[in-house]
Design a protein around this nucleic acid. Structure first.
Lengths: 215, 215
DNA sequence: ACCTGAACACCGTTCAAGT
DNA sequence: ACCTGAACACCGTTCAAGT
């Protein structure tokens, strides 16, 4: 609606306007949806909103996407497909650190993405395949295949969960109400909560756990 | 609709039917919503469905609940309010284990609850306050207040995430596609995945990490 | 005080038409 | 092949009535 670049030039060259060519494309649709996700959150990415942003009828989208679930899957892929999860480092610890810092950075760059990935019927298996590097690193650390997978899931849950909390503002839930259960002077950590530090703490804790596990 | 016990007796005693008393109550509404959540998942708990289950107009609910968010908050509270998160054990490790095993057990008893708690604007701070016992245990383990909180969030993300994956069937997402990225003989852990064992592994890993951290 | 019924502004999606 | 428009079966919620 408010995008000035969307209603631009129509029929190019000499073609006599072949049925109002809009060059609507799956890529353009996915990008419009991602823009909506970034600006207004996951509940704003609606077939009708996406269509409106592209100045098109809702039903026009279905020539390119199949369903809303398909579109959301495309959005998730698009947001992650330029990620580089490979640290190219022989040390398994720095490899795992790099991997999940990268995942978190992307989730913070696209508010609403973490939520989208948690609503998992939307995330295609392909999305996190690059994380194979993490599995390799954990195996290299000495974990058997099954435990490497378990640790991988633990790290994914943690990373997405934290990013999600951060994105929707200082935790509305899960926090034991400091204002009522605890004297005021102890509530300081809630007021200036350092998400970055908390994330790094969690990563270190898990990696320390891996160390102990393989020892 | 299909509940035979809902359309039962009307006006009792000698009262001349004072405007069709339905004894509709917040508790009954919350319980009907929880039943819907358990049977048909979170997307089935709809104002209209809840009203239908109670044989009442959707708008009748608003005399007792305020909004759908308020209702969902009530459902979360109801599902958790009989939980006993206190192990009454001096050992901090068994206290933390008990706490999160209990949380997970409740989430598995109420499929859809984990998802509900993750959509956190719905979970009231009060819901997880009993977890104060966990914080106390982690402080007792030697963690400073801030790190105890961080570990608490890590454990909550992990527990809810795992329960959520388990509830919606063998992970549709987040799994690095074994069938295409890896030879078949290595895919066994995917086929018979032991959620209980994976959860226990995660707990142990985190507690080992705490041990290392305070040492 | 509590419940109903109609209505409003939304959803995703189907289907028959248009070009 | 691609897009439109009307329609269907849903949402949560407001508002004026009924008792």
């Amino acid at each position: 609606v408010s995008d000035p670049a969307s209603g631009g030039e129509r029929e190019r060259g000499s073609e006599p306007s072949p049925a109002r060519a809009r060059d609507l494309t799956r890529t353009r649709i996915v990008e419009a949806a991602l823009a909506l996700l970034d600006r207004n959150g996951v509940e704003a990415v609606t077939m009708r909103n996406v269509a409106g942003a592209l100045d098109v009828t809702p039903m026009a989208l279905y020539n390119h996407v199949g369903s809303k679930a398909d579109l959301l899957r495309g959005v998730a892929v698009r947001a992650l497909d330029h990620a580089d999860f490979d640290a190219h480092d022989p040390d398994w610890r720095t490899q795992v650190l790099h991997c999940f810092r990268e995942l978190r950075a992307i989730c913070l760059r696209h508010p609403g993405l973490a939520r989208l990935l948690e609503v998992a019927d939307v995330a295609p298996p392909a999305v996190l395949v690059p994380m194979d590097t993490t599995l390799a690193a954990l195996r290299q650390a000495g974990l058997p295949e099954r435990d490497a997978l378990r640790t991988y899931f633990l790290l994914v849950s943690f990373t997405l969960g934290q990013a999600d909390y951060q994105n929707r503002g200082p935790f509305r839930a899960l926090a034991p109400r400091p204002e009522t259960t605890r004297p005021v002077e102890e509530t300081t950590p809630y007021n200036h909560w350092d998400f970055d530090a908390a994330f790094e703490f969690g990563l270190r804790l898990v990696l320390d756990g891996v160390d102990t596990m393989v020892k």
